[in-house]
């Protein structure tokens, strides 16, 4: 009981759930648990089922792509206040990258199967969660596109031929 109350407070404080009705936050808290990952430990691996997402409370995590024969390529880093994982909300509910803790990471872990079940039963909860996750997905897509543009690259690398 004490832990659930603590998680409700953490959800209340997180910007992702700002303005959300208490009843919905309570439903989410029922699927939540605390999680701790030591530096260097993988939170999840690419290709696995997206059965959890995380609200980072402390530390940072690198999203990586592994290409055989190369060092892991870091696509993005996330840190305190960020949401780790959005694959859980969109079929086929699959993880797209490896996630490795760069420092000790403390997070609220949300059980996605539990939450998807509640969203199926309570469509308003589902709408509220989609409404909050779509900007997260859109921001990451826009950021990835900007990174591809290579804004700081040398002009000689992009001379028209």
């Amino acid at each position: 009981m004490v832990q659930v109350e603590g998680l409700e407070r953490l959800l209340l404080e997180h910007p992702l759930f700002e303005g959300m009705a208490d009843e919905h936050r309570d439903l989410i808290a029922g699927c939540a648990a605390n999680a701790v990952f030591e530096a260097g430990r993988y939170v999840y691996r690419q290709g696995g089922p997206a059965d959890r997402f995380y609200l980072i409370r402390h530390g940072s995590v690198a999203l990586e792509v592994h290409v055989p024969g190369r060092e892991p390529f870091i696509v993005e880093t996330l840190r305190e206040g960020d949401v780790l994982g959005w694959g859980w909300i969109l079929p086929p509910f699959r993880l797209n990258f490896d996630a490795r803790a760069l420092q000790l990471m403390r997070a609220v872990s949300i059980d996605a199967a539990c939450l998807r079940g509640k969203m199926d039963e309570d469509h308003e909860l589902g709408y509220q969660l989609y409404r909050r996750f779509m900007p997260v997905i859109a921001d990451r897509l826009a950021a990835s596109r900007l990174q591809i543009v290579d804004m700081y690259g040398h002009p000689d690398d992009y001379v028209r031929t």
Binding site: R70, E71, F73, I74, E76, T77, L102, A143
Partner: peptide
């Protein structure tokens, strides 16, 4: 922050607006 990095970098990766 940097736009691209490999495993040995422990700083931020992502756009500066982040």
């Amino acid at each position: 922050t940097v736009d691209r990095a490999t495993g040995e970098w422990s700083g931020n990766v992502g756009v500066v607006t982040n």
